[in-house]
Design a binder for these strands. Structure first.
Lengths: 197, 197
DNA sequence: ACCTGAACACCGTTCAAGT
DNA sequence: ACCTGAACACCGTTCAAGT
């Protein structure tokens, strides 16, 4: 029993943590329930108590990914809360940083689902979207654009940042090109949206 | 021998075609070399003659995906070649349509690579990027923006369309929301870029 | 050049049994 | 409630052998 004093009711947490490391270091293909169990010092059937199947583990990883990304964006945005364009740049840059550090996890978060994504994942993803929306609301307060445009501009910003992150994570462009890209996008968003109508 | 008159030197093509169907209907996880071999009526070792391993098959699928997407975008753009904004909308809409019809394939095309993507895939992806760049060049000719901005604006458009496609393919937004999004993006791109500098 | 078929190691999943 | 361990079906990969 002193062999594994580590898990006393926290096997679930240990599996998730180890899974995130494998994802980071060796990618999704290398992620195996049996290997995780082995490394945690439990039998191969043990994970089943916490995750009914492999898909359930992946869903939990995606959910945690969204929560972490949301948290990182919030923290970055709050540090630059005085200037709207700087706020957006800080948030987008945090998003891009996450993509660079956790490319396989980001893939998993936005992987195609044949059926609807599970409730917990959907909810975590919406929390992230709500955060982005909140950042745009601050822009309205600062007079950058009318309140009626917030929904569309939030979607536009989200898509652009997500696209830039995908291009960087899949090695189509460098991280620096990604940063320049979001800089251009935000400049266009702030100036164009103000001038437009 | 009349059992399989179908493959006489075209097993490779048969495997690819069948793999694309599986990807479309049941997703990446359901894609198995052994099943493909079974359905093609050959032994499980046969695919090895054409694809050294599973990753090689996936790379070939990604490469073909890029070539097809490029082709579809070119065809859509040429139909609306008279008006620059309409050209961009048609191209972006074709991209989005591809994402809706082939979400798992698009995932595969932009999947994270731990090491560099193979030459053939990289080359096909660059061909797509070159097509996008060519569309923007036409905008320069039409006086929509200075030639010096083409590289950055191409990247910006590519990222936004890719992001919108990911959001649609992963069921975060509907296809209609995706269309509206790219409409906004292109309007902003054309007007903002002209007014900006 | 292309395909067969046995062999190996690994995997996800199920389930009766233990504590 | 949580974990063990045997069992099953499936998979990717290797390789000697065939044509």
């Amino acid at each position: 029993m002193s062999q594994r004093p580590f898990h006393h009711g926290n096997l679930r947490a240990a599996l998730l943590e180890r899974a995130e490391a494998v994802l980071r270091e060796r990618g999704l293909d290398a992620l195996s329930l049996r290997e995780l169990a082995r490394e945690a010092g439990v039998s191969h059937g043990a994970p089943r108590s916490h995750f009914p199947d492999r898909a359930a583990l992946l869903d939990a990883l995606a959910e945690r990914g969204f929560l972490r990304l949301d948290e990182e964006i919030r923290r970055a945005a709050v540090r630059e809360r005085d200037d709207h364009a700087r706020t957006l740049r800080a948030a987008a840059s945090a998003y891009l940083g996450f993509a660079v550090r956790e490319p396989a996890l980001l893939d998993l978060m936005f992987a195609t689902k044949v059926d609807e994504p599970p409730e917990a994942v959907r909810s975590a993803a919406e929390r992230l979207f709500a955060t982005m929306s909140g950042l745009m609301d601050a822009g309205v307060a600062a007079g950058a654009y009318p309140a009626s445009d917030v929904a569309r501009l939030t979607l536009l910003l989200s898509a652009t940042v997500q696209g830039a992150s995908t291009l960087v994570a899949s090695r189509r462009i460098t991280a620096d090109q990604g940063e320049a890209l979001i800089g251009d996008a935000i400049a266009l968003l702030c100036s164009g949206a103000a001038a437009g109508r």
